[in-house]
Design a protein around this nucleic acid. Structure first.
Lengths: 189, 189
DNA sequence: CAGATACAGCACAGTTTGTTCTGTAACGAA
DNA sequence: TTCGTTACAGAACAAACTGTGCTGTATCTG
């Protein structure tokens, strides 16, 4: 990709990220993004069709790395350490979040956090499905599989939200313990 | 309240509800609401400062009745019917939702459902706090109380969302059983 | 070096927003 | 019924935003 393209694209992402951490998505105008990124009006529209598409691409970039690295982990191992969260994918995710790449923590704590938490959740569902695929745990339950997957992923997202809302006072390890203690009883591990 | 005021207000609410069930909140212009409600521009702005305020008032009206009736129920009784969901507030809420007053089901299943689910959740938190207040169950756990309350309320909201997304194929009783079986193990009932 | 291309700057028509004004019709109390 | 009050429709308004098109310039790539 052309260096000029990369620079413009990055400038727009950065300006947009800043604005999102400051004010409501709906109140951000394209004009503001253009001004903050210091690019021409034409430039913005050659890169992104609309503000919504910009948001979509930002979200994809935000979670790609985190999810990719989590997908690469060995599956289903962490179940055998009940009460000990050391090998959980969820702990891995929390630690990854703490690196705060691209100010993901700022976005997840902003007034726009719902947007990002939604993206996070949909990625999580896929992750959880592959993680539990080999274990058969989801099938052992009396509850429908997709109800369980939905419950687990949304519970994790809510846990992260709760954690961030309280300024990450707890360690990732402690949070993982909290989370596993509301999830594992259901799976009868 | 003047009859003219009531009629205008109701026309705006109705038009807005219809539009919300059809398209994205952000894509709805005040002009569309005015046209659909068939009122003058001035009228809209004398009733509601902005579109956001209109939404806020709609949400308040939507959940007031449901929550008020649930608040009136005897507290803490349903815990003693473990495995039997007959007396649960949650069952009460689901049955109330099914009455579909003001098309609340349409709104909760629309593409704007997140807006309404968020309101629902914040109301639920208060309800759950009062419901569990007498039982001491929330304090018995090793987990922080507000973490538990958040987990329970968001789990119920997610359960409702899941139920509606699948066109309410299950009975409220069955859904209550699903929900209680992911919550009660944590409270050790 | 030379052709391609991403860019800034400007202008544009169309839309939306929130406000203000005027005259009219519906209301409610006496 | 009468009369003062009030909600209303309709129109006009400035300001802002949106998405597109155009021109000339600077930067990139081969």
């Amino acid at each position: 990709m052309d260096r000029r393209q990369r620079k413009s694209r990055e400038a727009i992402f950065e300006a947009f990220t800043y604005l999102l951490s400051e004010k409501n998505y709906n109140k951000i105008s394209v004009q503001e993004i253009i001004d903050a990124a210091d690019v021409g009006r034409t430039t913005f529209y050659t890169h992104f069709e609309t503000k919504d598409f910009l948001l979509k691409e930002l979200c994809e970039e935000l979670f790609r790395h985190i999810m990719d690295s989590a997908m690469g982990l060995p599956h289903g191992h962490y179940h055998y350490y009940c009460g000990n969260a050391k090998d959980s994918v969820f702990l891995h995710l929390l630690r990854h979040l703490q690196e705060n790449d691209r100010n993901i923590l700022g976005l997840l704590s902003s007034q726009n956090n719902e947007i990002f938490l939604r993206y996070f959740k949909s990625d999580l569902k896929r992750l959880i499905l592959t993680q539990y695929a080999d274990t058969g745990l989801l099938q052992k339950s009396k509850l429908p599989e997709d109800y369980l997957v939905n419950h687990i992923s949304s519970s994790f997202v809510e846990t992260v939200d709760w954690w961030l809302l309280r300024d990450r006072k707890e360690t990732p390890e402690a949070i993982t313990e909290y989370f596993l203690s509301v999830i594992e009883p259901i799976l009868e591990v």
